[in-house]
Every structure is written in C-alpha cells, then in structure tokens.
Design a protein around this nucleic acid. Sequence first.
DNA 1: CGATAATATCATCAATTTGGTTTATTAAAT
DNA 2: ATTTAATAAACCAAATTGATGATATTATCG
Lengths: 415, 415
Amino acid sequence: MQRKGSNSVHVRNYNERVVLETLRRYGEGSKAELARSANLTPQAVAGIVDALVDAGLVEPKGKRFGQVGQPSIIYGPVLDGAFSIGLHIGRRSLDAVLVDFAGQIRASETHEYEFPEPESVLSLAASCIRRFMDALPETTKDRVIGVGLAMPYFLGGWKSEQNVSEAVAGAWQAFDLKAKLAAVSGLSIHLENDASAAAVAELVHGAGRNYKNFIYFFMNTFIGGGLVLDGSLSTGAHGNSGAFGPYPVTPSRLSTVPPPAGPFEILLRRASVAVLIRHLRACGVEIGKLNDLEFLPESAQPFVDEWQEDCADALAQAIVGSIAVIDVDAVIIDSILPAALLNSTVASVVRRFNEIVPDGLIRPAIVVGSIGAKAVAIGGAILPVYDMFAPDSSVLLKKTRSNKRPLLVGSGGQR
Amino acid sequence: MQRKGSNSVHVRNYNERVVLETLRRYGEGSKAELARSANLTPQAVAGIVDALVDAGLVEPKGKRFGQVGQPSIIYGPVLDGAFSIGLHIGRRSLDAVLVDFAGQIRASETHEYEFPEPESVLSLAASCIRRFMDALPETTKDRVIGVGLAMPYFLGGWKSEQNVSEAVAGAWQAFDLKAKLAAVSGLSIHLENDASAAAVAELVHGAGRNYKNFIYFFMNTFIGGGLVLDGSLSTGAHGNSGAFGPYPVTPSRLSTVPPPAGPFEILLRRASVAVLIRHLRACGVEIGKLNDLEFLPESAQPFVDEWQEDCADALAQAIVGSIAVIDVDAVIIDSILPAALLNSTVASVVRRFNEIVPDGLIRPAIVVGSIGAKAVAIGGAILPVYDMFAPDSSVLLKKTRSNKRPLLVGSGGQR
DNA sequence: CGATAATATCATCAATTTGGTTTATTAAAT
DNA sequence: ATTTAATAAACCAAATTGATGATATTATCG
C-alpha cells in the first residue's frame, strides 16, 4: 500500500509500450507521427522504434508520399512478432484461439462437453496448446508470450441451476488449473474471469474503443460482466467486479421460473441463455444445441418474446442500479445468442431502461457488443499481450511483487 | 484518448510527490526510511528531501537514536507549509474549514439557512474565505493553495423532496459558483460532489486508510456516496459515480412514506435524514434542528426504530447491488446523525445485509465512518492538496490539457 | 568495570549510466 | 523555395553505482 518511486529505466520501458501500442492500435505510423502522438521528441521515438525493429516487433512497411516534405517511412507491427493463446473454459464447451501480434485469429478450436471435469479440461487445454505450438514454424515458437485462461470464478458454482453433481463442483475448488497448465505447457498463464476477459476483447477490438468507461454484460449459459474504467479493466479487490449473476432484481414473470428463495430474485435466473432454453423446453419447443436457437420454428416465437421481455426488464434494472454506483459512458451487452435475437433483446433493454430510469442518473449509451460468442477466448488471448506490451502506468512504478519485465533487454535497475 | 510518453522531469516530479506523501502520511521519517519505502536509492531521496526543505514544505524534526549505527535525521512536513480551504455547500448549511499541511483544522465556520440561494451562498462563501485569509500572517498567505468546493450536483434537484421553489432550483442550473468564486477569491477552485469529497476525507484521514477499495455512503439530508478504487477516488465518466440517491430499492414499509411513483422506490426516499425527520414529525415528535436528534424524548424511540429498520433494509439492498458491480474490501457508512444513532443503524445494516446477500458475492467489511458531520468540508479541503501534492501516476504522463505543475520550480520540458 | 574494537546504519561526495531534449544538418518530397 | 522527415552530436536532468566518512550500539578484552 506504499507508493513507489520511478526512474529513467521505467520511463523508457513505458515509452516503448506507448509507441508499440500506438502502432498496434492504428496499424502503422511514421516516427514523426508517433512522436507527435506521444508528445515525445522525434529523437526519442527514433531510438525506440529502432530498438523495436531490432527486437523483431516492428518493421518498416514502406514510404508515404503525397504531402510536402520528405516522405515518411511507415512502420507497423510484425504480424509474427508475438503470439498469444486464449482459452475459454465454459460450462458447456472449451474455446481456444491462437492470435498473432495484430490480434488476428490464426487458429481456433471448440470442444463441447456435458459439464467441465477438471482433469479432462486440463488435458484438453494442454492438447489445444500443443497443437497450436506444433503448427508454428520452429523459429517463431518462442514468440508465444503466454496463455490467457478465462473461466467463471465459480465453475462448480450455481449447482442448483445446472445438473452438476456435488462431486464435480467440489473438485474445482481444490483444482489449480492455472498452476497445472503452467507446469505442462511451460508458458506463463494469465487467469481472468470469463466475462471480464470478454470485456477486454470488447475494449481492445470492439465498441469499447469509443468509450473510456463502460459496463459490460456477457450473456452466456449464465450471465457475467466486467467493468472498464479509464480505458482499462477494473477487477476490484478480489477480482470479482462485474459479478452480475447474483445481482438482485425483482422476481420473474415467467411461469416456468420458480419463485425466488430469498427476498429477491437474482439476475442469473432471469437474464441468461440457460433460462431461455429451459423456458422453451418447458413450453414444448425442442432445443438441443445452442445453434438450434438460430432456426426456431415459427411457433416458438411467442415463447422467445416472453423470455425476451422478462430478460430485458431484469437487465434494465441491473443497468439502473449499476450506473448509480458507477457513472459510465456506455453499457455494452454481448452474448453467445444469435445476432438477431441479441439485437432485439438489447432494443428491448433500451426501451425498458428509458421507462424506468429515475432522475439524477446520467444515461449511458446502451449498445450491442461487436464480437459475439468468441469474445471470451479472444479476450483471454489479449491478457498476456497486455501484460507484456500495454502502457499501463503501473509500468512506471517500481517493482513490488512481480513487476513487468522490460520489453527489450537492458539491465537497468537497482542492485 | 491517446497515451502520452514520459521523461525524467516527470519522474522527478512524481518522486517528489511520493516522498512528500509518505512524510505526510506517517508524519515523519528519515531519508533512509523514505528511500526504502519508495524503492529509491538513498541518494535520490536525499536530493529530493533537500529540495523539499528548500521549498519550505519539509523540515528536520530532530535525530532518532536507539538503534545501532549513526542516528537518523528525522524530517517531517512543515505545518504551515501549505493551507487549504474546504467549503461544503449543503441543502441546509454551509460548512467551511481551513486546514494546514498536516491536515489539522485551523479554523472552521458553519452557517445555516432555510435553503441555498445562489447569490447569498456565493457571498457567504467568499466572506468565509476572506476571514480565513485575514487570520493568516502576511508571510503565509501565499501558502494557501486552493479551495475545495463540495456540493451536490443537483443542489436544486429533488424539488419534490424538499420545499424548494422552482425558481431557486432553476437558478442553480445557470449559476457557475466555481467560476464566480475563483474570480472573487483569486484562488484555484476544485469542484467535487459532496459525498465524493466526504469519501476522500475518509480515504485520507479515516478508516479508508485500511482499505484500498471501498464504497462510501454519506447519509446527509439526502444520501450520496463515493467510490474509492485502488487508493484513489473514482468519479466516473461524468463525475456522477456513487449517485446512490436514485439507487432503486423496494418500497418503504413506513406508513409516512407515500408509495413510489415509478416501478420501484429510490434509496433517497428510504435512507436519509430528511425521511427520519419527516417520519418523526408525522408521528408527533417535535424536531427543529438536527441537533434535536441527540436529545429525543423516550416516547420517540419506537418511531426512530421503525425508521432505522426501514433505512437499514434499503441500505443493505444498495450494498448487495453495489458489490455485484464492483468488488470492494469495505463499505463505509458515515452521516451527520449523532454517533450513537449512526452506530446502531450500521449494526442493523450489517444484520440485514447478512440475511439477504446471495452466493457468489464476496462480503466486504461494513463499517461506520470515522469523521462525521464535517467529513464533506474536510474532504473538500483535501482536494487542492491532492491535486498539488499527491503521487497520482498521471503526473508521470505528459500534459494533454491542464497538467500538473512541478512542485518545485524547475523548467524542464519541451519547448 | 572501563576502554577498545567491531559492526551496523546513516549520510554524502564523485563518477557513471540511462534516456529524453536541444540544436544543427541533411535528404527528399511538393 | 519551402516544407517536412530523419538523423547526428552535444546537452541536460535525474537516478544508480561505488566509495568514504560519521556516529551510534554492541561485543570483547584486559
């Protein structure tokens, strides 16, 4: 809890990250442009860019003509400069992606299961990583900087909401997937809540780029969320921020949802894909896989609408409460649902929100997420990249625990 | 929204703030201790401390003996090194404090009114500032670094909740108190929401020192709050974070509170001193000033208890929802209420919270604030101090808009 | 028990290193 | 001719490294 000082080595490290991040964000830029954008002198930036070129992270992409004066040499990130693996351990499936330095997906796998069993998830994850690594040319294998592991904090939790045995639930408690995966893969593993990871994906690649502060909902089998404040993910004291599953709302009006046990209902039991599927089944609509939601019979529409109204009302309540706690520019809602269904659900949320929002709150934009089902895995893959390359101002501070290593070699530091 | 670089001048500025803040926090320390605490070399700290001494902000306080080795020279902040003025513009009164560099209150004033009228509040505030300035010796007048203005964002708002005329409410909309006060006082004015300012006071001087992340409630005539994340105040996109007044809760059970207009009640109409007083009056208890709450007749106790139960239930609901949004170490509740009444109310909140909190949330400590009625004004006074002296990592970044000036002279920067 | 040596801690001077800034020069486009 | 980009050399700020001295407590020897 004690503030630390800084020194020029940290500054260099930070400035390198600033330059690199700008390049990753805009795709390309000249030294002069980068200097203006970072408020650094052309000299300082020249040194940094040259070092980044030496490190194989950046390369010249050609010259830009057309304006008065000497043409600029354009630099951009080397696509194969770094790779990262994202793993999304869900309640029904495991998603894995390999992304390159530009954030493009180079490979991806999905494996479904009835429910997640620790040992088999571990071997499944390990085999995904192995296949990704094997597919990379020998010279770039060491460019894989890490694995982002995105999963619910309580994978075995909410037993009553899914048919999960007490044994399986308990098994996760004692199972340190992160450590085991680090051991078998030899890579650094970054663990994050599933919905928070999805929020990161939205922040970096999606609508989040327009908003510095937003609340994010990800409607999955269950529902979770994340919080982006001042352009970076805020996870809270114990990493449990954006735990919208247990957010209190009024009881559901759906006949297929039993009344709540406590004094109020929780969002999880009104706004989640599990509830939709259960409702449809109870109403006689046959649903096997998630994909079936795309091609529902005409007769199912009224039941979908029922759920949608109820879901939107619950989400609107959660949004009103959330923006009282924290004032944001936007609320972003994404889901594994088919795009059309998600769009109309969010439209309902907006309508309902405007009906109920009281005076004294500033209305945020409420928008649909732009990434969809793969958001969690993609967000996971971003975690190691950000830890290594992002200009978080913590880089400027001196190490307390595991401080970030310098991007490029260099020793500089206290003995 | 573009990241900026840094340089050694910023680093020096930041390190100075780190050293000074450590000294202000612990009251005193030797150069060697400061070096260890900031992870800087003794040399670096020596230079900084010497510069701070030259600037009149720090002075040697004597030597410390007792341990092996050369005795340390102890340094501490100069009490008269800086002064700051805090103004709390409330709905029923104006509080003003003058604090010194150690955070001690050197002077304070309170002025009550029926309701705040812009022009008279301005002249009242200006006269407070003038009296504070006049009382300072000529040589230290220039040590007043600024004024912290803490007031509700919607001073004229919630018209229906108080007997405020439309005219008075509207007058505040167009009235730029900050600018006018800056003009007449010649000092820099820092505006902040009242409850957020109180949260800052708690963060710096109160229970907040034990918690890096907390949610803060201040139960005043109405109720508001603030959010402290990672050791600093988080105000959100438009500065409206912690707007707990309009937080949605279930309707009141008190017979004297009319049913809500919308689909839910708002916290303001269940947990606020205004509601308590209205309830007591409706039940035949005579209440004039706030002070009367300290000496209530025996017969009033049942009515106080009724209100307390209802208030605690509403607060517990707000806490449950808030910690789903953002995971904190603690929830701190302070108020203008007499200490005994506040203590028992918070005890009720804890009880009720434990009854209703669902699984999947991490339970924060729920504690009573340690400052009380003057929290807002004290917090206000802290604002200019923090802007000038606190090691916020934004100091390390290059100026975009109004960047912080260096503490001590020095030119360093781009031309 | 008192004098003396050993040791730990603080403080500071001087030299070095890092890294951004300033100034000046050259290159290449419109 | 003018403008802009790139680069080289000198400069400067500030932290780190290395070495030295100051002064207390603690251990030890006579």
